[in-house]
């Protein structure tokens, strides 16, 4: 039985990774989850310098999910390389670094600094809804997305995954723009923009007013978008959005995802991603599936 998949020449031992921002740099979960089992770890977004992030409250629970407006707080790429990357080197898993920035130059600066490290791939966050000027704009206009992808590809020495925003009219157009810009893969979905109001205090629950909606409740939207995107492009698609068990993950794979990420579910169960791997194996045994790749896009 073969669980491994290949994304832009990078072989993952299985198609399960952790979604950016929900698993720290792996360090925070290392005592609770077996990092060596993961296909890849996708780190929290990292910028060229440290970012303070947004005021609190930054998180709120909503029915079947949550909102977050962390604001991409991160210690900056230098600290990240010195501490987080060093830590991850001890593990037998692929490392995908999620990169954020306010400008194309900032993205490129991070990528260039990481070019000579053991990082396997970059995931470019052009879709964070919680940062004022910038990020989301890169991900909401097909022309800007294509140009941004090109600029990053020009400096990147490792495969580039463009992470798409679901807050667009046509996910297909955005997927095509990333592909046209030379992206090696795309990942989706980032969070949907949401809002929660405390009716007793007549106040916004989040200091940022709006926040990114994630968790089980977003899954149907995410599966539909992964289906549409993967049928539009030839490059591999990494699917995520509400995956909390193997059944969820398999929906994404059947919809067309080559790999999947477990995000918010890590908060509900630190071992959620390991259980997804176990469950995919059990499914393959049950249906006599020899190679997971035969399931990719197999929905009809």
């Amino acid at each position: 039985m073969k669980l491994s998949v290949n994304i832009a020449g990078v072989e993952l031992k299985n198609p399960v990774m952790t979604a950016s921002g929900t698993f720290g740099s792996g360090m925070e979960y290392a005592e609770m989850a077996d990092l060596n089992r993961l296909g890849a770890i996708v780190t929290k977004g990292v910028a060229n310098v440290a970012w303070e992030g947004n005021p609190t409250p930054r998180v709120a629970e909503v029915y079947g999910g949550m909102l977050n407006a962390i604001g991409l707080q991160n210690p900056g790429v230098d600290v990240f390389m010195e501490r987080d990357l060093k830590f991850l080197e001890a593990y037998d898993t692929k490392v995908i670094v999620n990169v954020c920035g306010h400008t194309v130059e900032e993205y490129c600066e991070v990528v260039e600094k990481l070019n000579d490290t053991k990082v396997s791939m970059y995931e470019i966050n052009v879709s964070c809804p919680n940062v004022k000027a910038g990020a989301l704009a890169f991900g909401q206009d097909a022309g800007v997305l294509e140009a941004t992808t090109k600029a990053i590809k020009a400096v990147a020495k490792k495969p580039v995954i463009m992470k798409l925003s679901p807050n667009v009219t046509s996910i297909k157009d955005m997927a095509l723009a990333a592909e046209a810009g030379g992206a090696d893969a795309i990942s989706l979905i980032n969070t949907l923009i949401g809002m929660k109001i405390d009716i007793n205090r007549k106040k916004f629950v989040l200091a940022n007013r709006t926040g990114g909606f994630s968790g089980p409740a977003v899954k149907p939207v995410a599966v539909r978008m992964v289906y549409e995107a993967s049928h539009a492009v030839k490059i591999p698609v990494i699917g995520m959005g509400g995956i909390s068990n193997a059944e969820d993950a398999l929906e994404f794979i059947l919809a067309g995802a080559t790999a999947v990420s477990v995000g918010t579910a890590n908060f509900t169960d630190p071992e959620a991603s390991m259980k997804v791997i176990d469950g995919i194996e059990a499914y393959m045994v049950k249906y006599g599936t020899e190679d997971i790749r035969s399931l990719i896009g197999a929905v009809s």
């Binding site: 929900t22 925070e28 992030g53 609190t56 930054r58 998180v59 949550m66 707080q73």
Partner: peptide, 16 residues
Amino acid sequence: EERMACGVGACLGCVT
């Protein structure tokens, strides 16, 4: 006290 998601330092939701 602050609103928390992960409780283990990963999400950066609960800062002061």
